[in-house]
Design a protein around this nucleic acid. Structure first.
Lengths: 172, 172
DNA sequence: GTCTATAGCTTGATAGAC
DNA sequence: GTCTATCAAGCTATAGAC
């Protein structure tokens, strides 16, 4: 917890948008600095390197995703709704002005395991002994939904993914 | 059709591997040249630019994927098998020594439409009126399978994707 | 068609003042 | 902690000989 620093927050915000829109490699540090209105040395004082900044951006995103998913689960009315709440959270994230390629951060190892374990847990009340299998199916569908958001027709990606998930849940 | 040129083929092969393993942006032209054993000017004579080389690599890949899928469909015994043949083709590609991140090329617009239309066609005999809907579900699953191959546990990605697809087909 | 050599630019990161 | 100014390295692409 660095003593509150406007520059730090602005750097994280600028980097998140630019990295997501253009890709990390295609985004020069100078561009992040310009958008944040910060000097080069300040960035290196806070994050050490471009890679350090990237890591900090991913961490921040993961934490927000985590919170959004938890909130969606809490808001759901029943077991089936809680299992499918991932898609509500995806929808929130997608509509919430987040960069169009925000989903790339989900391609990390930590996140895959998080998804798998939570989905298995949530699938329990719905599928009983078949919970692990259903969770595995839903993991594929969630991954596919993220992938679809990278392509044309991204707007309807979450809705289509949810429809597929519902078909799977109903077939249990 | 350039007069047969060993350099051209070597460049395509080297670029395919390196681009897939490291990403295009992270791969310097020099590295492609070194692996191919070719001089800079030769690359620019054939492809005009790094982007031109990248485009040529994608074209070649798409053509091979196309052929592999068609072969898998032909080899399948029945309608259901033909519909699920995408996964046979994915398996062939994945095992065939292709770079671990080969799937990135499937994130193109052209390919998305190709997938959708062919899957819809193949779903006809299996799902009748529900063909379009089933194809849409399978499109999500195929995309998810590709995404899973980018993460740890990639080896079993195709098998798990196929299992999800079978659950969907069976529920029709 | 292919080579060697190099131009010209952009990048990530640092030095030193305040 | 933040700034201005700058370095050293790496990149893509081209020139010119064979």
């Amino acid at each position: 917890m660095t003593p509150r620093s406007g520059a730090r927050e602005r750097l994280l915000g600028a980097a998140e948008t630019l990295f997501a829109d253009q890709g990390v490699a295609a985004t020069p540090v100078d561009q992040v600095l310009a958008r944040a209105g910060v000097a080069p040395a300040t960035l290196y004082a806070h994050f050490g390197s471009k890679a350090g900044l990237q890591a900090a951006v991913l961490d921040a995103r993961l934490a927000r995703w985590d919170a959004a998913w938890a909130a969606a689960v809490d808001a759901a009315p029943d077991d089936r709704g809680r299992l499918l709440a991932v898609f509500d959270a995806l929808d929130t994230f997608a509509r919430g002005g987040a960069p169009s390629r925000w989903c790339t951060f989900l391609a990390t190892a930590a996140d895959t395991e998080l998804l798998r374990s939570r989905l298995t847990e949530l699938a329990g009340p719905v599928a009983g002994d078949g919970a692990a299998e259903l969770a595995e199916h839903l993991l594929v569908v969630v991954s596919g939904t993220l992938a679809m958001r990278l392509r044309p027709g991204a707007d309807s990606a979450v809705a289509r993914g949810r429809a597929t998930a519902e078909a799977l849940v109903s077939s249990v």
